[in-house]
Design a protein around this nucleic acid. Structure first.
Lengths: 217, 217
DNA sequence: CCAAAAGTGTTGCGGTTACACCCATGT
DNA sequence: ACATGGGTGTAACCGCAACACTTTTGG
């Protein structure tokens, strides 16, 4: 009835986080992958992530790993699901809290570390077979991403500091996977009222210069 | 560099689940609460829940606790957030996976157990100060509930096996917290096409009998 | 002058809202 | 007969989708 509970009976699982980092660049929706280190998945790509620390709030961990990979960067980070099937990690019981991260299309050089020794952007349409259950996590993240961008203003973090309306529209189209009408799109954006017109135009190409905007602060 | 990792360094957290069980009854949105057992929160109410087992998928745990409380029952269970602030549980590091559960308005008698020795339905408008961070969890759950009922057909699991259109409308109104137009509501429900007309009417009250429906199977 | 993207309004349709009266029953 | 909720249709409105031409620059 009152058996003594041993710590290893209740502290049986490793708590980890996996971060699905999205970026729109070169007319593509990209996800950040990194080489898996565990022997079981040698040479396979995986979502970046790692253990949560005993002394950190779980929401802090994904930001820490993101910074470890890319340095300090503007980002939107949001938890979207906890993955906890018994056998999702062959090394033992690992429960992963999965986070969605959106970052602007700057050119980042990856910061190499013991943990993340090789990283790469992948077009989401061209993602290889991933380690663990990471293909499933990515699939769930893609659904969530569309919801976010459609329903909220999460698009903001996917944009560079200055951009044209056409570039903004492209970003939407790439994320949502559908073409949008230019005039209707501009009416909608106008109504949302989160853009600020800059005193600059984008020039240097063989057509009419486009007005530059930034996100209203 | 390659320090040996001790299990207690990475298996530091207790994994738990908390279940926010909603039911619409007596014109009210009710949530199921149970008396906390830990000395720190003696005599306080808390969300039902408990530890996840080393050998069970995390998604199975909330269903197990729900059954422990109410027996086998029709329900809709859905994970909605992982709560993992370092100090959310004064006894130590506990990460809780929170689930939303919707059940029909049957009269359930609570199954008493060592764990759930006293349980009660509370109107969500009248919930006391809860143990742990459970008020915050409940708040998040309420937001999620509205989304679900508004955007999907989750309403189904909140209804009894037979009901009238007015009762269905009441359920929506109670969950959404707003009045709906009767004729417009019926047009919408008609369009959604998930009801089946029964050969019965609800009688025995001082007004015109109402057509009974069930959820299409 | 040609190519290429920027920029700009109006119309029509469909879906949602607003709204009021008669019906069937129990007491 | 009266009180109570059950049941039903239509008109106005608004938001969204469809749609094409002129402008400005670089080459």
């Amino acid at each position: 009835m009152t058996n003594k509970t041993r710590p290893e009976d209740i502290k049986f699982a490793v708590l980890a986080t996996d971060v699905v980092v999205f970026q729109v660049q070169n007319w593509e929706l990209n996800v950040l992958l990194t080489k898996a280190r565990t022997p079981e998945f040698k040479d396979m790509w995986a979502l970046p992530g790692g253990l949560i620390k005993p002394t950190e709030d779980v929401d802090k961990a994904p930001a820490r790993y993101l910074e470890m990979l890319l340095g300090k960067t503007k980002s939107h980070i949001e938890q979207f699901h906890a993955f906890g099937k018994v056998n999702r990690d062959p090394r033992g019981r690992v429960v992963s809290l999965a986070y969605l991260a959106l970052i602007p299309p700057y050119l980042h050089k990856f910061k190499k570390s013991d943990k993340f020794f090789e990283s790469e952007w992948f077009n989401v349409k061209n993602v290889p077979s991933l380690a663990y259950d990471h293909n499933e996590i990515l699939k769930t993240a893609l659904i969530k991403l569309k919801e976010r961008v459609e329903l909220t203003n999460a698009i903001k973090t996917l944009m560079p500091s200055e951009f044209t309306l056409t570039e903004l529209q492209n970003t939407y189209e790439i994320v949502l996977g559908e073409a949008l009408d230019k005039r209707n799109f501009r009416k909608r954006v106008e109504a949302m009222d989160f853009l600020e017109k800059l005193d600059k135009k984008k020039e240097g190409h063989a057509h009419r210069p486009a007005q530059l905007y930034k996100i209203k602060s």
